[in-house]
Each structure stands twice: as structure tokens, then as C-alpha cells.
């Protein structure tokens, strides 16, 4: 958790630095009156690195993944809920369970 968060923060810092560098580069272009041909290599490298770090943090920090396979242990349906809306009370439990000695204390 701590590691993932630190990596994520680092990624965000690098991305902001890339943004700052881009703004600076645009300013430089205006001053030297050159045509824009492509972003400078250090910005591209920073973007890639920041993206990777942020992706790592995004995948590890929120927790584990759940399975989407219908046949996995956590998704495999073994039984349906009993249809309690339609439950009826005249069954054999009426005889078997009637002598409950517990009472609600009021």
C-alpha cells in the first residue's frame, strides 16, 4: 500500500514536471521564433515514465482484482436463495421444532 502510493505520487510529480517543461519549451519556441516540429525528447521520456508509474499505482493501490469468470470460486453459483417470499408454515418443522424453550424477554 505504502509503496504503491509513493510510486503513484512520484508518477504524478513526473507528469507535472513534464507539463511544466512543455510550457517552458513553448515559451522558448516563441522567443526563438522557431516552428514546432515535435516535443523534446526529455518530455517524451518523462511522459512514458510517469505513465508507467501511475499505471502501476493505479493497479496496485485500490486492491485485488475480482474474477470475471463465471466458473471461478467466487462467481460460481452453487444454489439459489430459498424463495422466502413464498415460504409456507405447515411443514414438518411444525412438529419437530415446536418445543422451543426460549422466549423473548420483554
Amino acid at each position: 500500500m505504502g509503496l504503491g502510493l509513493t510510486v503513484g505520487l512520484l508518477g504524478v510529480l513526473i507528469l507535472s514536471h513534464a507539463a511544466y517543461s512543455t510550457i517552458q519549451y513553448r515559451g522558448l519556441l516563441k522567443i526563438t521564433e522557431e516552428e514546432f516540429s515535435g516535443p523534446p525528447i526529455n518530455v517524451v521520456l518523462e511522459l512514458i515514465l510517469g505513465f508507467l508509474l501511475c499505471m502501476y499505482a493505479g493497479l496496485t493501490v485500490p486492491g485485488n482484482f475480482h474474477s470475471i469468470h463465471p466458473s471461478s470460486e467466487e462467481n460460481r453459483i452453487v444454489s439459489l436463495p430459498e424463495n422466502l417470499d413464498f415460504m409456507i408454515f405447515n411443514h414438518r418443522g411444525r412438529v419437530a421444532l415446536s418445543d422451543s424453550d426460549m422466549k423473548l424477554k420483554l
Partner: peptide, 20 residues
């Protein structure tokens, strides 16, 4: 508990729960 009590035929307990 009231519904469970009805299912187990302890109607007095169910009555008490419903009264509450």
C-alpha cells in the same frame, strides 16, 4: 426473528416480537 419463530411454530415468541 418473528418470521423464524413462525417457521419454528413458536407462535408466542412471534407474537411478542410483533407486539414490540
Amino acid at each position: 426473528v418473528a418470521i423464524a419463530a413462525m417457521d419454528c411454530n413458536s407462535l408466542d415468541t412471534a407474537r411478542d416480537c410483533i407486539n414490540v
